[in-house]
Structure formats: C-alpha cells, structure tokens
Design a protein around this nucleic acid. Structure first.
Lengths: 223, 223
DNA sequence: GTCGTACAGCGTACGACGTACAGTGTACGA
DNA sequence: TCGTACACTGTACGTCGTACGCTGTACGAC
C-alpha cells in the first residue's frame, strides 16, 4: 500500500483545509445530499476513515463548510457611507449563498458560529456602530438585514431558475395552468401580469435591501 | 398476522392524512433527522412498507408535512386594515414555524408548493391587492414579508433559547468568553450591553414586521 | 545501528437508512 | 364458488456514518 508521505498524486497529503475545500466543491455540484464521507475520501484519493484524522465527524465538517462560505462574504468597507457599505456586504452575502446553494440549508441547523462567521459579524457591527447606530439599533439592523439575505435565499431556492426567460417559460407551461382563475383569481392575475412584463425576481433582493436601508436610516437616531 | 380491516388498535386504519399527521408529530419532538420510515410505521402500528401505499416516497411525505404547516397559518383577515391583517398573518406564520422547527429547513428544499401553500398565498395576495397594492408592489411586499418570516426563523434557530433568561445565562457563560475585547471589541460591547438590559430577541420579529409594514405603506401607491 | 513511539492512513464491520420486489390474507362482486 | 382487487408486510439490497483495530513509515533517544 502507498503510505507515509506519498498519498497518491495529490498536492501535499491530506489536511483539514483540503478536506473541507473538497467537501465544498462536491456540495457545489452535487448538493449536501450528494456529499458522503466515502465520496469525499475518494475525491481526495484516500480511504473514508482517513478523514477522521482531520475532522471529528461529519457534523463538524458541515460546520467548517458553512464557515468557508462566511469567509467568502466581503465585510462592509469602512471608508464609505454606511448604507453603501452595508448594501455591498448584503450583495456579497447573496452572491456567496448563490455560489453555494447548499449553505442556506446547513446554516439553519448549525448553532455554533465559526471563526469566519464571528469575524464577519464583528465587521458588520463595527460598520453600524461607527455610523451612529446604538447597540440596540445595530442589533435591529443586523437581524433585519441578515434576515433579508437568508429569507431571500430561501425563497429563491423555491423558484430555482437562473434566468428570467426560464422562469417565464416555466410560469407559462407549469405554474399558470395550476392556477385556475376561479380558484386563485389573484395569483392567476399576478402570474399573468408578471409574465407579461418580463418579471425578474432577482430585482427583489435589491428592492428589499434599499427599502430596509432607507427605513433603518430614518430610525438610526432614536430607535 | 393481523390484517385486513383491523390494523392494530389505531383509529381507523392507515390513510395519507394519518401518516402525514404522525410524521409531523414525530418531527416535532425528534426533528427531521429523527423521522425514519420505520419509526413512522412503528408509531402507526404498521410495517414500514405499508406507508408506500399512501405516499410515493419520503420526499413526497416531506412535501405533505410542509403543507400541513402552511395549513396552520391563519390567512390575513379581510375585514380590517391591511397592515393589521398582514401583521396578524406574519405572527401566525412565525408561530407555526416555532411550533414546527423542522419546517424551515424542509421548505428550503421543496420546490412544488402544496395546496395549502397556494391557498394561503392567494389569501395574502388578495389582502394586498384590495389594499391598493399594484401587482408588482404586492409582489415586492410578498417577498419582503415572507423573507422576514423565514429569515427570522432561521436566525432564531441559531440562538435556540426559549427564554430571555436562558439566553442571558448562555451569553454570560459561553458566548462572552469567546469574544475577547481585543479581537471582537464591537461584538463584546454588544453582548455586554444586551446582557445588561435583559435583551429578548423575540422582540426583533415585531420590530422588523412593523418597520416593513410602515415602509411598504409609504410605497404602496407608486412603487 | 537499533529500537520505541507517534502518526497517518486504511479495511472491516455494524447498525441504521430508503425502498424494490414478491409475496400474503381478506373482502367483495359475479 | 371463485377471481380479483386491496391493504398490508417480510426480506433483501445498496448506501450511509463511523467504531475499532490494524498497518507501514518517520524520527528522536540510546
């Protein structure tokens, strides 16, 4: 058996970072349900049990994967207006979640935040506090903005189309027929009109973020 | 073997509704990961494979379970101001998700809405349209309000304490020690201050809903 | 040079899982 | 009396996470 310092043909032998990175890659193109310890090990040119030298169990692996996603979110820049900064942060978060669609479902079940998560939260809180938010108002803002990012990602997952055209086709052929006007007059009307104007749900994210930032700005002092 | 019209000692023999209801009960006190077809069957006094006469597969069961949760959400009452109505609806949704914590993680992965889901969406859309929202503005409102409910539920799942006291204890003993002031000055400050004033994250939901309703009201006409 | 120890990795095995398949007894219409 | 349909089940297969005990190698101490 090939052992010791020559794993197979891989860069440098195993390591926690390499294990987690490969897990992310697999989840990216097969989903979390497609990520098994055996498959992960095979992709790394190793046996399944070797992974347990770097991670305690699969749950810890999932924790680490979520933290990788948090590490990809750009913290809000500190040299611009807070609204511009938080808008950029939210967009970056939305992009990270779009790159790793599995992350949103994992985040729900993970209760202990990883280091990248903490670092990111610190940066966001710093941005808000420096902009004049009180601790309580910054907490409100954090809950609202994060909630928008997560809530949008969840709803987007239920309408999984990458283009407005694809969504339009699907609406016409699948959704609308399920919405007879006598049973669902308002949904039918909405679907019809949105289809006609070439509706693109991507805009919803920005609409919401801007609405939230404006509303928070108005309540920034006082609260 | 006891067969035919006398299952065991259960109400009326199996049925899709009974299977789904029992699945919800099991998930309520053991989580989705504690729900297996064998366990569900045992709880119903049946063999595992009997379930497949009422549901095609486990995925379809999960779809049906999610729809049960939607059925529990009170539609917005039509005889009051739209803000009051939507506030009540959001609260009801938040309560349903709190009763069934597993639902939020399932909703992410389910793409085909069940009948209760559709009925509920129809009622919400009706409420908004009658309040003067255009189709597009109603869509904005829907995304935002739903997003808030889901996003809040997700964040709440990461801070799983039923009382402000329990959260305070945990903050003092576990969270704060992980936030040294030199590394996380702002998070440390926030945790300390929130701890001092007896912060209760439950209020965040209402704060967010009211902010959203006010902001949407201002944009109701035009948009 | 020899040896003890620590480390990295692996093979096997166990008890769960979802579910395909091939039955089984009973009720009921003909 | 019989055929068929129905409600239900036992067994078995392939997969999962992972406990356990084994390997070969590197390296410091002597």
């Amino acid at each position: 058996m090939t052992q010791g310092r020559e794993p197979a043909a891989e860069p440098e032998g195993l390591s926690a970072a390499r294990v987690v990175a490969e897990a992310v890659r697999i989840a990216d193109d097969a989903g979390v349900e497609g990520l098994s310890m055996r498959r992960l090990a095979t992709a790394l040119g190793a046996g399944a049990m070797s992974l347990y030298h770097y991670i305690a169990n699969k749950d810890e692996l999932l924790d680490a994967m979520v933290d990788v996603v948090f590490a990809e979110i750009e913290p809000p820049p500190l040299d611009v207006d807070w609204k511009v900064a938080m808008r950029a942060e939210a967009l970056s978060a939305r992009e990270a979640l779009a790159r790793h669609p599995w992350a949103i479902s994992l985040m729900e079940s993970r209760t202990t935040p990883g280091p990248a998560n903490l670092r990111h939260r610190e940066a966001v809180t710093a941005c808000l506090r420096r902009a004049g938010f009180s601790v309580v108002m910054a907490t409100h803002a954090n809950w609202l903005l994060n909630g928008h990012v997560y809530g949008y990602a969840m709803q987007e997952a239920n309408v999984p189309f990458d283009s407005a055209d694809a969504l339009a086709d699907m609406t016409e052929e699948v959704y609308l027929p399920q919405l007879p006007p006598d049973q669902f007059p308002y949904l039918n009307e909405s679907a019809t009109e949105l289809l006609a104007i070439g509706y693109d749900p991507t805009q919803e994210f920005l609409y919401g973020i801007d609405l939230l930032l404006d509303a928070l700005d108005a309540r920034r002092i006082g609260g």
